[in-house]
Amino acid sequence: MTDEMTARALRSSWRASEQSLYSIGGGDVERYQRAIRLVRAVADDLLDIKSTDALVDRWPEAGGIVAAAAERTGLTLGSLPVDQVAGAAFALRQVALQAEETRRARSELIAAARAEGADWVVLHETGDPLAGFADPYGSTRMHLESGLAIVAAVQPDLTTGAAVHTLTVVRLDLRTGDLVDDDPGVADLAYSDSASFRSGQAALREVVEELAATDRIG
């Protein structure tokens, strides 16, 4: 298995290849369209790979995978660089795998919280709410009964550039945590200091719980 530092470098190189390949200039539409079709074909041949770790381990075979996809589809590389086509295809598959892994992790968190009889589950939390932009805070807490989730973030004030704490309520799928409604009309709040932000979070949790109780009664 590839070590994590090498894996990160590979993933970064795939994204760079993707950007380079799709930055084709000179108005060569045919070359651009051929690149897209070939990348898609290579990515299709990577569908049997079910994890980002396995994708990294498959990279040494990339040249052969590109050649096989080109032969299968009748597409020619021409002036398209093999390493860029391969990198773009691996980047495309990586995005899909990361989405699947994130979704699976959310589902497991939700199931575990329900099994424990919890009312809320933290689906995501990073950074420090006191650090501003030095370590930007972000979190998503879902109410297990209603699917309403409080999304917290640190964003720049458009006028002053100062760090502003925001709280938004969205609705998520009760099993997977997938976004169902990005604006259920509950709250979209901003705070200039962390103390008010923490108080706002607590108050908003009560609002969500009251809404859930009202819906249940209704």
Rank of each mutant, 00 (worst) to 15 (best):
A9G: 08
S199C: 06
E108W: 02
S12P: 06
V122G: 11
A212G: 13
I65R: 15
E61P: 02
L55T: 04
V169C: 06
I65E: 15
E108I: 06
A7R: 15
T166M: 02
P136E: 05
G127M: 00
E116G: 12
Q33Y: 14
L167D: 06
T6F: 07
G177K: 13
S51G: 10
G74C: 01
T140G: 05
S196H: 00
Y32A: 14
I49G: 00
W59E: 06
D44E: 15
R114V: 12
L47F: 07
D215R: 14
G27Y: 05
L92M: 15
V29S: 09
D178E: 15
A16H: 12
W59Q: 12
E61K: 11
P184G: 05
S79D: 09
A118E: 12
L144F: 13
A202C: 06
L10T: 05
F90H: 05
I36C: 13
Q19E: 12
D157T: 04
A105Y: 10
I150C: 04
R93W: 08
G185E: 01
L80W: 07
E30C: 02
A134E: 10
A105V: 09
V56K: 01
V39R: 01
T176H: 01
D157G: 07
F133E: 03
E108A: 14
A35Q: 00
T166Q: 04
A149S: 09
E206P: 00
V66C: 08
L204H: 04
A69Q: 01
E4F: 04
T76F: 09
R31H: 03
A70I: 01
D128V: 02
S12W: 09
R15D: 14
V169F: 11
A43F: 04
S20E: 14
I65A: 13
V154Q: 11
A113H: 03
G87K: 01
D44R: 09
S196R: 07
I217Q: 04
S13A: 15
E210Q: 12
I49T: 06
Q19V: 12
I24M: 11
S199I: 11
D215M: 06
T160Q: 01
T2W: 10
D48C: 08
S13V: 11
A195C: 02
M5W: 02
D48Y: 12
G161Q: 00
S13M: 15
R106Q: 13
I24E: 03
T166N: 04
I24A: 09
S194N: 12
W59C: 10
D83L: 13
R11M: 11
S23L: 07
A213C: 00
I217H: 09
S139T: 13
E108K: 11
Q98A: 13
Q33D: 14
P136C: 08
V207S: 07
D157C: 09
V56H: 04
L46S: 00
W59V: 07
G27E: 07
V154F: 07
L148V: 13
R106S: 14
L158K: 14
R205T: 09
D215F: 05
A86I: 09
A202D: 15
S17D: 12
H124Q: 12
D48P: 13
A134T: 06
S17P: 07
A213Q: 05
D83S: 08
L167Q: 06
A7G: 12
A115C: 01
L130Q: 14
A131L: 01
G218C: 01
E209Y: 02
A69N: 01
A113Q: 02
S196F: 00
G74P: 00
